[in-house]
């Protein structure tokens, strides 16, 4: 996983134009971020990165980078190599 890949996936999920979301963007400030998007976010993280992040963990993340760090921690070693 790299930042470009992660940001691209977030742009697609939230259907926002390129460059809207950055590593230091505050999650709650992303246009369209709401409790309704959690299912979509969980599905995206599972599909794109093969990780399942608990809701409580997502809610503790402040910025996009915090969420990226959580994904990196949860990535299986095989995925890291891929």
């Amino acid at each position: 996983m790299n930042a470009t890949q992660f940001l691209a996936a977030l742009h697609e999920l939230f259907d926002v134009s390129a460059g809207t979301i950055h590593k230091d963007s505050v999650l709650q400030d992303i246009p369209g971020w709401s409790s309704m998007t959690f299912i979509g976010l969980i599905a995206m993280l599972d599909e794109e990165f093969g990780v399942r992040i608990a809701l409580g963990t997502i809610l503790r993340c402040h910025t996009v980078e915090d969420l990226m760090d959580e994904v990196a921690v949860n990535l299986a070693p095989a995925k890291m190599a891929a």
């Binding site: 959690f38 299912i39 969980i42 599905a43 599972d46 399942r52 608990a54 809701l55 997502i58």
Partner: peptide, 12 residues
Amino acid sequence: MNGPEIFLFTLD
């Protein structure tokens, strides 16, 4: 219902 948690359970 905590929908996201239920979804995580189904994924597992």
